[in-house]
């Protein structure tokens, strides 16, 4: 059974989540992938204002497909999170509390999740058409020239996720692999 969590995330929720938990997320989240991360981190280094809030917020690594006429958004599944690893520490230092993507994170990011109290969620990659049904609104708030890589504010409802890395050091991928590994 999945439990409902609200975005942005509060500290109590973050602390209560454990690797492997199924979660239905409702609330406001922001999208950013490779090119947007690069710009955000460069803007931070220059001391500029950012186009989105960070404290307690959830960042979803996605570049959605174009929406059909009348649709809120096109298919919108997660992209590979590891590519965002080099940009993730400064975001966690500024209080980002949740990350959504697919695939493994670096040891540095996993340690930073523990240090800063944040959670890395996985969404089912390739279930993009179904995931888009849980997005109620979508608005580009920065970098429209990046096309699908622009930063969007999304309202999601019961968005299905699983906790990959929790803030206590738990790792769902690692645990799952060990449980089903057969020696060759």
């Amino acid at each position: 059974m999945s439990r409902t969590v609200c975005a942005p995330l509060d500290e109590e929720t973050v602390r209560s989540l454990r690797a492997g938990d199924r979660v239905a997320m409702t609330g406001r989240i922001y999208t950013a992938r490779d090119a947007a991360h690069k710009r955000l981190v460069e803007a931070m280094e220059r001391g500029e204002d950012l186009p989105l809030p960070l404290a307690g917020q959830v960042i979803y690594y996605v570049g959605p497909a174009p929406a059909k006429p009348g649709a809120v958004i096109g298919p919108a599944g997660p992209t590979t999170s590891g590519r965002m690893d080099p940009y993730t520490l400064p975001l966690l230092e500024r209080g980002v509390a949740g990350l959504i993507g697919k695939g493994s994170r670096s040891e540095e990011v996993k340690a930073a999740l523990v240090r800063h109290g944040a959670v890395y969620f996985g969404a089912i990659a390739g279930a993009s058409a179904l995931l888009a049904r849980q997005i109620r609104s979508s608005r580009v708030i920065a970098y429209p020239d990046l096309l699908s890589e622009a930063v969007r504010e999304l309202e999601v409802e019961a968005f299905p996720l699983f906790v990959v890395n929790d803030c206590h050091g738990g790792d769902a991928y690692q645990a799952a692999r060990e449980a089903y590994r057969r020696v060759r």
Partner: peptide, 13 residues
């Protein structure tokens, strides 16, 4: 399929 990774890396054969 003996590596244990499984569908989406959530474990399996």
């Amino acid at each position: 399929n003996g590596l244990g990774i499984g569908p989406q890396g959530l474990g399996g054969f």
